[in-house]
Amino acid sequence: MSRADATQATGLGAWAHAIRRDRKALSGAIILAVFALVGIAGPWFAGDPSALVGVPLQPPSGAHWLGTNGQGQDVLAQLIAGTRVSLAVGFGVGLAVVLLGALVGVTAGYFGDRVDALLSVFSNVFLVLPGLPLAIVIAAYLPSGPFTVALVLTLTGWAWNARVLRAQTLALRRRDFVAAAVVAGESEWRLLLVEIVPNMLSVLVAQVIGSTVYAIGAQVGLEFLGLGDVARVTWGTMLYWAQNDAALLTGSWWTFVPPGLCVALVGFALTMLNSGFDEITNPRLQLERVWRAFLERRGVPAGRSTPVVREP
């Protein structure tokens, strides 16, 4: 890796580059793109997901590719309509959770002392409180719907991000270039927004991806419990109705397998994307790859340790 590449790898444009170079990241990105396309364009082609189109609990056939559910609605049309809401809530919460986490974590790490002590205890308390039970209790008091689900998941999910970002800020705060900026008399806002936050960009992007995985899973869980708006079609409410209509006991696997598979595929794609980015941006893994290539060229088997190698 040359110097030019190294500097490029810290910029935003590196993401596209990283996706193209890494097989894991590429497959993740392709799966996500397909889901995004279905979520955006699908509902125009799929027809009304709530229309009663046939006999309830029909297995997949030519007329209904994924069969019908317990109400006699088309499962495929529901799946496509559900993609939009489920992904929108997932990514929305993923973003919101990281923003809230960044607000608390960066403030704590940057200002230190009492602010830090207070905010750290605050986020640690939220970290140790069990998230899903808390989310259920809050959601039960609010009117049901996608917005409530998003709000509740944001409130219960930000603490981990705050903790990681605080550590990142603390590490950056001690770096020479920040000290130089302080000496140069830059304002606190400029220090935060120009010197510190842009340098955490790769962590922030990784967190948004990770939080989205959390959000989609938790959202489906809440809706499965009936805490979403059960009249609205999402992957979670599809599972709720499948359980309610005793899909298992009637053997109608087509009502609960597709939404679960979609959740898993999206989660898997996001995780692949994240680990692909990690391979690119983590200097340790980067060096290991360089070192292994070096050894392989000379026909030496690689050892167990990850060595520290100067750039060749």
Binding site: V220, L239, G260, A264, F268, T271
Partner: peptide
């Protein structure tokens, strides 16, 4: 990546 309860259903 599967939800716990979905894997349980399957």
């Amino acid at each position: 990546a599967f939800p716990y309860f979905w894997l349980a259903m399957a």
